[in-house]
Amino acid sequence: MNCDIRERRNERGESQADLAADLDVSRQTINAIERDRYDPSLELAFKLAEHFDCAIEDLFDPALDEDS
């Protein structure tokens, strides 16, 4: 699942460790989400949306095919 968390985090000048600490997850989890290697739980997705003050669908793009 594509996401723009890295861009939003960089805009705020936050490190992965800062974001991880705020969301109560490990830095490796933030890194994995940013690198599209892990899809967060719904709970964590809501926390991310709240952190960046936006909707979940603004953060994540399921990158579905146009035909699907």
Binding site: A20, S26, T29, A32, Y38, L44
Partner: peptide, 10 residues
């Protein structure tokens, strides 16, 4: 440190 989180569980 937080050693284990939801990703570890997954």
């Amino acid at each position: 440190h937080l050693l284990f989180d939801e990703r570890d569980d997954t």
